[in-house]
Design a protein around this nucleic acid. Structure first.
Lengths: 350, 350
DNA sequence: GCCAAAATGATGTACGTACCTCAAAAAACC
DNA sequence: GGTTTTTTGAGGTACGTACATCATTTTGGC
C-alpha cells in the first residue's frame, strides 16, 4: 500500500478533507473531540504529511537568520562561509538564510537586534551570543511571537525553548585534558591555560572539564589558573614569560578561545612551540597550518558545516512542527591531529 | 525577483513550455540548436528545477539498495541500525531503502547479487564489498544500465563512476600511528598489529599509513608485521603470547579490523590491557564499554549515520543528475577517547 | 424546539513540475 | 512545390498539500 495522503486520512478519520486540513494546520473551529479523532487516525494509518508538497503549496519561503557576533575572528569567518555555502544549496528547500551581526559583549545591543527581528517576517533565528539576562529575555519574546529559536554555539540554558546546537564544552575540556596528559608523556611541569576571557560560560565549562581530567594527573602536572589575555598580545607575552620562569618548567599550553592567532605569535617569538604541547580550539586555515608545521599538537573542533546545517534543520523542524532526528543534530567534539585533518574545501560541487 | 520557474525559462529561451520540458527531461524530438538555446537560458536566468515539485509530479519513489556483507559483526549491525533509522526519515523525501546481503569474501556471489538487482526497478546501489575484478565488472554493468552506484565503506578505485563514501584509510592508519606514538609516551618496545586479514585493500591502506608514522619513531618503537587472526580466538592468543615473550617488551596493540571483540577477550585473559596502549576501529557499544573501562585507549571511527545519509544523498544526486555538496559528503576520520565519546542514542525524536 | 453560533463539508484554485495527446509549424526530401 | 518527417506549440491532467469561500449541518443556550 502506498503512503497515505490527506485523502486517506480524511476517510480513516471519517471527516472531510477540510477538517483534516484544519487539524493539520491547527486552524480554529474544530471541536476537541474531532481533533483527537483525526490525530488518532494519523497514528493509526501512520500518516506523514508530504512536506515537499506542503511547501510547494505554501509557496512559502522559510526565512532564517543567524545572529553572529560582530567582531571578526577566523571562526566567525568560517561560519559565515559555511552559511553562504549552505545558502545556495538551500534554495532547493525553500529556505532563505541571512546573517546579522551584533556586538556580542553588549547584551543590550544584542537584545535590541533581536527585538528588531520580530518586526520583519522572519521564521527562525539562530543566536550566537553569550548567555545574559537580556538575551534570555529577548529569546523568550521571540518565542512568544512564534519564532523558532536555537542557541548557536553558545548555550542558553535559561531559555529552554531554544535548542542548543553546539558541542558539549565540558566534554571538550575533558578531551583537551586527556590529550594534554597523554601527549606530555611522562614529563613533569605546569600546563598554562590561556583564554581571552573567563566571562563566558563556554570558557567556564571547558575549564571545568579540563580540570576534571588534570586532577588525575596532579602528581605530574600542575595547572595554571586561567590567564585572560583579553585578546591583547602584550598581555599574553607577559603572562607566558612569567610562566616560563616558573618552577617546575611548563610543558603544555591550552589555548581555550577560538582566536589562537595572537597568542601563537607570542609563542613563536619565544620559540617554545616545539618543546611544548599546545592544544587549541577550532580548525581554521590558521590552525591547519600550525598543525602541519607541528607547532600546534592538536585542535579540538566542531564541524562548522554541521553546525550550520543542523541549526537550519532544527529551525525548520520547529517552524513546521516536524520532528527532527536528534542523533543527526548532535555536534561532535572532534579531535584533529595533523594526521586526520580533513582537506580544506574550495569547490562546492562534485 | 523570485526563483525562476519553467515558465520563466520558456520565456527566456523563447520556446514553449513543452520544449522546455523536453529538454529538461532529455526527451527526443528537439533540435540540437534548440537544446543549446534552452541550456543557455538555464544558465542565464540561473534556473534550478524545483526537485520537490518534480518528485511530486513524478510520483516516483527512489529505490536505493545497500549491499552489505552477510557476516554479522557489530559494525554491520550499526550500519543496519542506522539505515533503519534513516529509512523512516526518508519517507519524507520519496526514497525507499532496502538492504541485501552477500558473502563478502565470495566475489562471484556478490557479483551475482548485483546482477540480480538490475532486473528489479532499483535506482541506486551502495556497495560494501572488497574490491575484486568480479565486483568491479558488476559495478560497470549496473552503471551501464543507468543505475547510480557508490562504493560504501570499501573503496572501489577501479570503478571510477562509483563515488567512494567512506574514510581515507591511509589517514586513519596515520592517525592511529600518531596516537600510538604519543600515548606510549617515552616507552620503548614493540607495537603489535592485529588484523583479521590483510587481503582487503582497507587493511593495506591502514597499514601503510600506520607505518609512515611509526617510521619516525623507529628509534623507540618497533612494529610487528601484520598478524592475521582470521577471526580466530585461539590463533590470536598464540600470536599475542608469542609477542609477550619478545624483546623489547611490547607496549601497544593496533587492532586494525572492525571486530575487536574476540581479540580483546584474549587480551583480557592475559591481563595486559592496562599496561598496553590499545587502539582499535569503529565505535560500537562494545568499544564504548572498553573506552569507558579504560582497556581500550582510543578508537578511530567514522560516523555511521553520516555514512548512510551521505551515501543516500550522493545516490539521489546521481539519480536525478543534481549536484551534491562535496564538503558535506566527506567522511571524517574521527578520534574517540573516553572524554569525547558521544552518547549512545536510542530515542530518535526531539 | 427555536435560533444563533459553532463546526463541518464541498468545492475550487494554486504551487512547480511531469507527462500525455493533438495540432500546427518548420524543415527535409525528392 | 508538394509531401513526408521532424520539431515545436498548446493545452490538459496529475501529484499532495494549503488556503479560501460558501453552503450545510450540528450543537448549545434558553
Amino acid at each position: 500500500m502506498d503512503k497515505p495522503t490527506t485523502k486517506d486520512l480524511a476517510k480513516a478519520a471519517g471527516v472531510s478533507l477540510a477538517t483534516v486540513d484544519r487539524v493539520l494546520n491547527t486552524r480554529a473551529g474544530v471541536r476537541q473531540a474531532t481533533v483527537e479523532r483525526v490525530q488518532r487516525a494519523i497514528r493509526e494509518i501512520n500518516f506523514v504529511r508530504d512536506m515537499s508538497a506542503a511547501n510547494l503549496a505554501r509557496k512559502k519561503e522559510y526565512k532564517v537568520v543567524f545572529l553572529l557576533p560582530d567582531h571578526d575572528d577566523e571562526f566567525i569567518d568560517l561560519i559565515q562561509n559555511e552559511i553562504a555555502k549552505t545558502a545556495r544549496f538551500l534554495a532547493y528547500e525553500r529556505t532563505v538564510v541571512s546573517i546579522i551581526r551584533a556586538p556580542a559583549n553588549d547584551p543590550h545591543r544584542v537584545a535590541e537586534q533581536m527585538d528588531n527581528l520580530s518586526i520583519n517576517e522572519i521564521d527562525g533565528v539562530a543566536i550566537m551570543a553569550p548567555e545574559t539576562p537580556q538575551v534570555r529575555d529577548a529569546i523568550l519574546r521571540l518565542e512568544a511571537q512564534g519564532l523558532a529559536v536555537v542557541a548557536f554555539v553558545s548555550h542558553q540554558p535559561n531559555a529552554e525553548g531554544a535548542n542548543y546546537v553546539g558541542i558539549n564544552n565540558e566534554a571538550a575540556g575533558r578531551t583537551v585534558g586527556q590529550l594534554m596528559a597523554r601527549f606530555t608523556g611522562m614529563r613533569q611541569g605546569t600546563v598554562l591555560v590561556l583564554t581571552e576571557t573567563m566571562q563566558s560560560r563556554d570558557s567556564q565549562e571547558r575549564r571545568l572539564g579540563f580540570d576534571t581530567i588534570m586532577e588525575k594527573y596532579s602528581s605530574r602536572l600542575k595547572v595554571s589558573p586561567s590567564m585572560e589575555t583579553y585578546g591583547d598580545a602584550l598581555r599574553s607575552e607577559k603572562i607566558i614569560k612569567m610562566a616560563l620562569q616558573s618552577q617546575p618548567p611548563f610543558v603544555g599550553i591550552y589555548l581555550m578561545n577560538h582566536d589562537v592567532r595572537k597568542t601563537m605569535q607570542v609563542i613563536d617569538e619565544l620559540g617554545i612551540a616545539q618543546q611544548t604541547i599546545i592544544i587549541g580550539h577550532e580548525l581554521t586555515s590558521y590552525t591547519r597550518a600550525r598543525l602541519v608545521d607541528g607547532s600546534i599538537d592538536a585542535v579540538i573542533t566542531q564541524d562548522v558545516g554541521h553546525l550550520v546545517r543542523s541549526s537550519i534543520r532544527v529551525l525548520r523542524a520547529k517552524i513546521t512542527h516536524m520532528p527532527s532526528v536528534a542523533s543527526q543534530e548532535r555536534i561532535r567534539v572532534e579531535i584533529i591531529l595533523r594526521e586526520n585533518m580533513p582537506e580544506e574545501f574550495h569547490s562546492e560541487n562534485m
